[in-house]
Amino acid sequence: MKINKNKVIEKVVEGALFMSASLSVFVTLGIIIVLLFETIEFFKEVSIIEFLTDRQWTPLFMNKHFGILPLLNATILTSLISMIVAISFGLTIAVYISEYIKPEKRMIIKPVMEILAVVPTVVYGYFALLFVTPILRKIFPDISTFNALSPGIVMGFMIIPIIATMSDDAMQAVPKWLREGGYALGANKFQVTTGVVIPSALSGIMASFILGISRAIGETMIVTIAAGQMSNLTFNILEPMETITAYIVQVSLGDTPAGTIEFKTIFAAGMTLFVLTFILNVFSYMLKSKFRERYR
């Protein structure tokens, strides 16, 4: 009798744990349903052709245009700038701490590096707008107060730890015998690093790049504060421009009643953002699993 009671309790507990774990599935479903629902509503009023090809995004003006291109362009430009910074610094740091310094030092540098990712993004926004942009103005006198370059650079620093940490993990996973094989052929350390270690860890390193891009695309506050809230289709990174995320914030700050076309636009923009990051995340996940399998 007592034994039975215990078994029942075990089953109940397992059921409760399973419910908790499946909550995450409902969250994903919730995101997709919410985004899809309002996006479909949006496309009842705006043609998908206009959304993809119109060169202006002005849903909040009298003369409304619904072309996602200016927002997408700004999102991609700021992300690219940040990736230039994050990859060049992050990968160099990763090689350095993985191959060139003692493990004890590595164990100190890594968590300290992580602080860069802990700093709240509003703080970076403040820094980009009020510190980095004024400095950039000394180099580019015609840079606007709001521009893509400054938040791009600052965002890059925020992403360095992701790339440095993940790439370092990938290089650490490269087995010792592969390195020794290189040395046995008379290669020096630089040659082993660039010719053996980095190529062997490449899919892991690429996974970190892609995750970094995804993070940059989804980043909100830095670009909202320092790149401006005026949609602008341009490749001039010294000009103000509005990213997808910044637009969502801009609308949210105002009092936009549910059901209006303005309200629906943030979900269409959000859907675009979600699809972009989802593809990148899945890609990164696949690269990472592939890498893990190879060196198991």
């Binding site: 919410v34 985004l35 989804g218 909100t220 949210s252 959000g270 953002l273 979600f274 989802f278 990164s284």
Partner: peptide, 11 residues
């Protein structure tokens, strides 16, 4: 873990 936090805001 990779979904941008602003999407959670929309949710």
């Amino acid at each position: 873990a990779g979904v941008p936090s602003i999407i959670y805001g929309l949710l």
